[in-house]
């Protein structure tokens, strides 16, 4: 149980792929202009990550160490293709708005990183949970960043949610405030960099506060050091 809790902590906070490892920044910065896009790509990444972690963990004892990376990449590419075809079939609008960034999940370092660092060394159920947590951690950051940019950029939330969740979801669209001019910076790439920077800063502030609250462990008394070198 404590192992699962540790994995949860690692994925969602302590070793978050987006905020701490800073992996997979290309899709993170490119598609987070709205919550819908962010959630779509986050879900796709989550699916691929869980699938690849499970498969790689299952074959970890049969893959020769020397060629493991190409093998892992092939598994990941297989799952990405499955996800891409599924999205093409069921969420075509989202598929079009995400465009090249769905196939590019293959090159997301967060996924190959987990395969190499965790799934290739641990049993299936733990690897699956690790993939789930890492994927969720990544998705949460994507969605928060998407919400920030959508809110500042065009004053809405869940704009175009029907592309992801079906026609009923168009009621989710919230117009928080409306203005005549979009705040283009938030929608353009610089807004993504600024937003991610602010999120990382916020995480560091919270970490620093948590650390400050913990009582420092008492330092063991040391005897005075005697100088024994260069005594001429």
């Amino acid at each position: 149980m404590s192992q699962l809790k540790e994995l949860f902590n690692e994925g969602m906070w302590k070793n978050n792929p987006a905020l701490v490892q800073l992996l997979g920044l290309c899709p993170l910065l490119a598609v987070t202009s709205t919550i819908t896009n962010a959630m779509g790509l986050g879900l796709a990444t989550l699916l691929v990550l869980v699938g690849s972690n499970v498969t790689i963990s299952a074959v970890r004892n049969f893959v020769p160490k020397d060629i493991r990376i190409p093998v892992f990449v092939m598994f990941i590419a297989g799952f990405v293709t499955i996800v891409q075809l599924l999205m093409n079939a069921y969420t075509f609008g989202l598929y079009q708005s995400l465009g090249i960034f769905i196939p590019l999940i293959v090159t997301n370092c967060a996924i190959i990183g987990r395969a190499e660092a965790y799934a290739s060394k641990n049993p299936i159920h733990l690897s699956a949970f690790d993939g789930l947590m890492m994927g969720s951690g990544f998705m949460v950051v994507l969605v928060v960043l998407g919400a920030m940019r959508e809110l500042i950029g065009q004053g809405t939330l869940f704009d175009g949610a029907d592309l992801l969740l079906g026609p009923w979801a168009s009621v989710l669209r919230i117009e928080v405030f409306s203005f005549d001019n979009q705040f283009l910076l938030a929608i353009l790439p610089p807004g993504a960099f600024l937003g991610l920077g602010l999120l990382i800063a916020a995480k560091n502030v919270i970490d620093a506060q948590i650390k400050a609250k913990q009582v420092a462990p008492p330092v063991a008394e040391k005897g005075p050091r005697a100088r024994v070198t260069s005594l001429t």
Partner: peptide
């Protein structure tokens, strides 16, 4: 520059 790329018309 922020203003120029965000609000090109104004």
């Amino acid at each position: 520059v922020l203003l120029l790329i965000s609000f090109p018309v104004q």
